[in-house]
Design a protein around this nucleic acid. Structure first.
Lengths: 199, 199, 199, 199
DNA sequence: GATGAATGAGGATTCATTCAT
DNA sequence: AATGAATGAATCCTCATTCAT
């Protein structure tokens, strides 16, 4: 594989992400991608078997990038509580700074997701299992009050996803300050799990 | 308007909801709806001007039904805190028992939503403004600790949406009990706003 | 047939003419006519077997009206030359004051005309045969110079049609005065047939 | 551009012309063209953006060909009167030998013409402005009697169009010899403008 | 490595028409 | 006399994909 190939593959993926985020699903046709990239539609098939393969690659890469981003951030934290909060903070940070990548993980779902290889879902759980570990450690050390760490982690993730989605999909009321909204929401989600006396 | 008319219109809407929920956007074509209903595609145009009109009707009806459902439930509560929690509980209850209706409100978005009449968005905010009122009252009565009621209400809504979405879109881990997950998530969201001393 | 029937039939015809002239062929659907008339599309079929029948009726009535109009005008003239020029003038007058009726006779042609009953074409020739008669009489009296009256009449008709079409279809250059254009064209067409010495 | 490309594009245009001439507007669908050419309907879109683009191309090419044809013929004439008559004769000759091309210029009108780019109309006036020039020169040299050259040119064009239309649309009476009709009509139109003394 | 030609399937929508009432 | 319900066929057009080059 030459440099040029690599580059075209990357350009196709990047353009797809941008198109998907700015124009929506309906605008994401093989033709529109090719046009935007400045290449023939046929060329996409040199790198991807079909549209599904392209979409799945997009999901896979986003999942991977999100995981790596979180793992990186967590490594820099020291205490369990720090790792816990940093995990959450990093998740939101990634989503808000890379909305076109984050949204692919969740929004593509209904269409192509049914054909997404089940095994790859496991990868998507990586960062979530990280969170489970921190909670379990926190509970063991008496720093957190959590009945069921697995459920708690999933619940946190779900709530985060809700907060992030609202912001990304621009469903936030005009009168509400975006950063304040995110901050308050994060505080609320995190505080519920920490032992009060730690404050 | 004859019985048959009413019925076909209803059947079209119901089938659209089901198709949208089970098959996704891409499967929702005028043809596929007609086929499922067992009627010619042309017949849909007897009841809806075009596909947008049909989608907007679906959204509108769902929004209305959700609002009415919540308002009904809230009316049966007496104290502010009860009304507050009942509002939240009702929201989730509606979503989980009518997933195909709930999901229309949020998932149709990218395509037809941009052409959805702005004025109708206001209706969608009804139940959310209800929540703002309860929070303000709760704060006044010293039953809740909330810096900014508007942000809090939006944050609650976003978190609820996240939790509900996970369940509805079946992204929940198999090992997790659905009802337990919902219950714990709800508790977590609600508790954060209530004054501890009430415990 | 009651008064109301008559009236609806007339309204359908009139609306069809107007629509055809102002919006073009493509806008002339049974639905659009019905909508404009304020009646159900089905109602048109109470008065016309099908769209062809409606179009043919429009043509027939226009042809008839044009014939009657010309015959009336000609009757008021006394000399042969007067009748000749009056015939021509009346033709143009009808076309310019009833463009929506005139244009039906010629513009509908390509579509429905192939199915227009041949016998009815003869009626359309009535006013043209009138012209042949005048020319023959004029030649006999030495007032006109015409080799072949039949050809001459057809040629005049064709030229008139050209002039009238240009005006009606608004293909006339903006810089050109409509009335002047018609007057000069008419003069030119007529003068060529009259014996110079008569001037 | 390969040979095959060129050829298919040409075949589409030619088939469109033929269909339009023989069957009328209504028969000219993308499907019918494709069927006639023996190609899928989709293939047409490889050469034309949409139906309008195809129709406009047809008009443009016809206008261009007519202009070039006339200009060629006129160049071969020497005197002003010759150029004048040759201009007229060439116009009619083109129309009668290429009826399917001539008719496109005028008959497509009502539908697609409203969306025909204004600037291209100017090209259509080229041969007509040629005529204005000859008349002005003829008048200056005392060979023609014309009050208003612009109006005269337009009037001639209109009359020619009428004569040609009658022949092309086969509205000519069976008893009339086509060539004789055209000849006599031409003579009549031309003679009216020439100074008698030239006879 | 990349492309142009070509296509079958399907998209929303409109049409003339029929039928039962 | 008039209508609402319903439809099959047709409209333009877009899509993902294949194939030969």
């Amino acid at each position: 594989m030459s440099h040029a190939d690599q580059s075209l593959r990357e350009r196709i993926l990047q353009t797809s992400r941008t198109l998907l985020y700015s124009q929506g699903h309906l605008a994401l046709s093989m033709r529109s991608i090719a046009k935007e990239v400045g290449v023939s539609a046929t060329s996409i098939y040199l790198y991807f078997d079909n549209k599904d393969h392209l979409l799945h690659t997009l999901i896979e890469e986003s999942v991977e990038e999100l995981s790596v981003f979180i793992e990186d951030k967590v490594l820099q934290a020291t205490t369990v509580v720090d790792k816990f909060t940093e995990n959450i903070r990093a998740y939101v940070e990634f989503a808000l700074t890379n909305p076109e990548k984050y949204q692919i993980i969740y929004n593509v779902h209904p269409e192509a997701m049914s054909r997404y290889p089940k095994e790859k879902f496991r990868k998507a759980r990586r960062c979530y299992e990280l969170l489970v570990g921190f909670i379990e450690e926190g509970v063991a050390k008496g720093l957190m009050e959590v009945a069921n760490p697995v459920i708690a982690a999933y619940s946190i993730w779900a709530q985060l996803h809700g907060v992030v989605s609202v912001v990304i999909n621009q469903r936030l009321d005009n009168r509400i300050d975006r950063d304040l909204f995110v901050q308050e929401s994060l505080d609320h989600i995190v505080q519920g799990f920490l032992v009060r006396s730690t404050v």
